[in-house]
Design a protein around this nucleic acid. Structure first.
Length: 655
RNA sequence: GGGCCCGUGGCCUAGCAUGGAUAGGGCGCCGGCCUUCUAAGCCGGAGGUCCGGGGUUCAAAUCCCCGCGGGCCCGCCA
């Protein structure tokens, strides 16, 4: 159900006929995409710039426009055609547009559901945070973009599967497991497991780092006293001192967060007799080999972290269909197969003494274009495995990519991933191609988003400098709750809590998913927490207004509607917005651009509020007009509600 | 050094893929609007070298080139 598109098609068909008769062959679809809404409605409802076609026909644009007018005579709903300096603008009878729109809205249950002609099997992998710490707001951007894309694509009728890749075989998990084993204690009851593990990870990491730095300092110090240091070494000395300060500061924060844990870990590490590095390595390689002791230990740690991560995600309404352990891939033959294929590939090289794929060699202009890779310069070789034989992340990711396609016979796999991973993702796709996985290489889309930064803070989970999603949600809830309490004393405590939670989640989701992923997000709390302006709470508020009107008005008397009332400017605008809504949701999905939809529903809310302030709806005495007004409210409410669900926000009937 | 991304009123941003008509919002600021469907709202106002310079074009915020500024990447980390 896409009334806008039907109307555009009708118009395009006629222009197409006109141009064809002059000998110009163009695809109808091309013409359809040229049809736009003119800058203002006085110029017309729809228009098209004919300049480029005029040029191809060696005609004056104005003349072509003028002569095309005649072809539109039998256009349904046509009120007038104007040819203005090469533009052909069409005005429809408001009555016709209102009728088309309202019957569309009324005839389907899920207005806004626009299945595409081709149903695809899509896998969207997102979030995939390392299971060693709580999710921070950067992961939030990933998760919320990913989940919104999932909702948009599902709304296009595609079969979408959400997958979370658990990166459990790297060094980071091994380090955490080392710490976990070291203190031999389970997470405290009163703290989220991921939070607790995050502290443990940072503690172990920082204490080891501090020890290493001190060792280096000591080496330099003895010679510093005898003034044997070169300028370079003095520089290094200064840097080390600075590092000590940084590490100490982070440790201070950890001490404050959990003194007991701090003491426990530092004592245990002091008493530890072996070399932590060696033990971490032993855990890592034993786990990769699938030795039972390592398996049970690492999985225990990882699953505890995941439990916490899941809890946060589920608060936000983000769910997954499959949780894929990297280790399962390693233990299966898949990773080994990839490695042996790589070793026998024509692109195989020894690079700095290790096995690598020289992906640069297949990175011709055509290939880069085909795979949509924007890397201009040299693409470094992809290292397959470390000299000790352990496998590197990107190699495992090759196996995982193959697995994702094979496991559910996917047509398309989307990886939502931070911009800093653009190069490895390009290497990955080139490697797939090199190893003969052409379909996989061509249908793997990397959906890049830029960093989330916090003014004045360099986020680092290694240093326990993160703003967690849990914290953000609590903070949002607190603010929303204050506001709800202030306004809605009439509601019960539990209703107010429910509303405040919805607002908090809406604010988080909308602020993250409704603007350009390629722009670095300077996370300004005041902006996200702002409940006015073009924000999710504003949209929720508008939706509640519309709901309220419908509730108070009673049933809509559809048969009474007199469409000829749809004449005033705001009403016309609102009807067009509702009519175009399905088109916009479809576009947002096809372009993988949630922000397109976000902007649109804000615009619709603006228009509705403007109308709301200017005219009475329920009190309209003219019955046929009242019925029309209510039908419009109904359409707006339906559209906004649908838009909100695309962002994973529950539309509220009262706020 | 090389590559990629971003640059739009004081601040945040839409529009850029596929060039098209008057650059659209929000925050903040100034002035108004609650006896009437929820004022998280609405109305009015001030505020713009679309980073700069060239080029292509009938037409450039949008495309190309050269710069400038910011971020990221160029690891036997992920």
């Amino acid at each position: 159900m896409n009334p806008y598109s039907s109307i555009v098609e009708e118009l395009s068909l006629r222009i197409h006929r006109s141009l064809s008769l002059r000998g110009l062959t163009i695809e109808l679809s091309e013409l359809m995409s040229e049809v736009v809404e003119p800058p203002s409605r006085e110029m017309g409802d729809l228009g098209i710039a004919l300049h480029k076609y005029a040029k191809r026909l060696s005609l004056e644009p104005a003349q072509l426009a003028e002569e095309t007018k005649g072809f539109l005579n039998d256009l349904p709903g046509l009120l007038g055609v104007k040819a203005i300096s090469g533009y052909l603008n069409v005005t429809y009878s408001p009555e016709y547009i209102a009728k088309v729109t309202i019957s569309s809205v009324r005839s389907v249950k899920n207005y806004g559901y626009v299945p595409s002609e081709k149903t695809l099997k899509v896998i969207i992998e997102h979030t995939s945070a390392n299971p060693i710490h709580p999710l921070h707001i950067g992961h939030g951007r990933n998760a919320l973009l990913g989940d919104t894309l999932y909702r948009l694509l599902s709304n296009r009728g595609h079969l979408v599967q959400r997958r979370f890749y658990i990166n459990d075989t790297g060094r980071q998990v091994a380090l955490l497991t080392f710490g976990y084993k070291l203190i031999n204690r389970r997470p405290s009851e009163n703290v989220k497991p991921d939070e607790w593990l995050g502290r443990l990870y940072a503690l172990v990491n920082l204490l080891i780092e501090l020890r290493d730095i001190r060792n280096e300092l000591n080496k330099l110090r003895s010679r510093l006293e005898s003034r044997e240091l070169s300028e370079l070494e003095e520089e290094k000395h200064r840097e080390l001192l600075k590092k000590v300060d940084e590490v100490t500061a982070s440790l201070g924060k950890l001490w404050e967060a959990d003194k007991e844990l701090f003491d426990e870990v530092s004592r245990a590490l002091m008493e530890y007799e072996g070399d932590p590095e060696e033990e971490i390595l032993r855990i890592m390689s034993s786990y990769e080999r699938g030795e039972e002791w390592a398996k049970s230990l690492v999985r225990e740690v990882v699953d505890r972290a995941l439990a916490g991560i899941r809890e946060t995600l589920s608060k936000l309404g983000v769910e997954f269909d499959k949780w894929d352990y990297e280790s399962d891939l390693v233990w299966s033959s898949l990773v080994n197969e990839v490695v042996s294929k790589a070793l026998s590939s024509p692109l195989y090289i020894r690079h700095k003494g290790v096995d690598a794929l020289d992906v640069q060699r297949i990175a011709s202009q055509q290939v880069l274009k085909k795979l949509n890779i924007d890397i201009g310069g040299e693409i470094p070789p992809l290292i397959i495995r470390r000299s000790d034989g352990t496998i590197l992340y990107t190699t495992k990711d090759i196996a995982y990519s193959i697995y994702k396609f094979a496991d559910s016979n996917a047509d398309l796999v989307i990886n939502v991933i931070g911009a800093e991973q653009k190069l490895p993702q390009a290497q990955l796709r080139l490697a797939l191609l090199a190893l003969g996985y052409v379909r996989e290489a061509e249908n793997l889309v990397t959906y890049i988003y830029e960093m989330v930064t916090i003014p004045g803070l360099k986020m680092s989970s290694r240093r326990y400098q993160i703003v967690t999603l849990d914290w953000l949600l609590e903070e949002l809830y607190r603010r929303a709750r204050d506001e709800v309490d202030r306004r809605r004393q009439d509601l019960s405590e539990s209703d107010r809590a429910k509303i405040a939670w919805t607002i908090a989640i809406a604010a988080a989701r909308f602020s993250m998913a409704s603007y350009d992923p390629l722009k670095p997000l300077n996370f300004n709390l005041n902006k996200v927490l702002d409940l006015s302006g073009n924000s999710a709470p504003y949209i929720l508020y508008t939706h509640a207004r519309a709901s309220n009107i419908l509730k108070k008005a009673g049933d809509i008397e559809w048969d009474l509607i007199d469409y000829s009332y749809a004449r005033n400017e705001v009403i016309k605008e609102l009807i067009w917005l509702v009519m175009k809504y399905p088109q916009v949701v479809a576009e947002a999905a096809d372009k993988l651009s949630p922000e397109v939809l976000g902007n649109y529903i804000v615009r619709m809310a603006d228009c509705f509020n403007k109308w709301y302030e200017s005219e009475r709806i329920i009190d309209e005495e003219d019955k046929p007009y009242r019925a029309l007004k209510l039908a419009i409210v109904f359409g707006v409410k339906k559209s906004i509600a649908h838009g909100l669900t695309m962002f994973g926000v529950t539309p509220l009937d009262t706020i």
